[in-house]
Amino acid sequence: MTRQELLIILGMTAVTFGVRYSFFVLGDRVSFPAWVRRALHYVPVAVLTAIVVPMVLLPDGVHWQVNWRNAWLAGALTSGVLAWRRLHLLAAIGGGMGVYFLWRVLGA
C-alpha cells in the first residue's frame, strides 16, 4: 500500500464514519422536537423506495423496462403483493426471488 493510498483510505474512513456517527454521537443529550420526530417517521419509506424503484424500472440503469418481460419488475411486484398480504418478510423475499429467477430462466 502506498502512502497516497493510506491517506485516501484514512480520509474516506473519517468522512464515512463521521456521517454515520453524526447523530449517534449525541446519545440522550438531545431529544428531537416533535416535528423532527414526525419527519423521521417517513425516512425508511422514502429512502428505501428511492433506492428500489429505479433499480426495478431501469435494471441496467439506462433503459426503461416497464413491461411484463422485466424480471426485476415481476419479482418486486411479487414481493410487494406477498408483503401486502402480511406474509412473513422472508416469505415475501423468497417468493419474489423465485419469480425473478423463473422469469430469467423463461426469458433466457
Binding site: V45, A46, L48, W72, G80, A83, A92, G96
Partner: peptide, 29 residues
C-alpha cells in the same frame, strides 16, 4: 443483486398504511 430489491420491497410495502406514507413513497420514487 435482486435480493436487495426484494428485501426493500418487502419492508416498505407493509409500511404504506396511510396516505402520508403512500405520498412519501410516490414522491421519493
Amino acid at each position: 443483486e435482486f435480493a436487495m430489491a426484494a428485501t426493500f420491497t418487502g419492508i416498505v410495502v407493509p409500511l404504506l398504511r396511510n396516505r402520508p406514507m403512500v405520498a412519501a413513497a410516490l414522491v421519493a420514487a
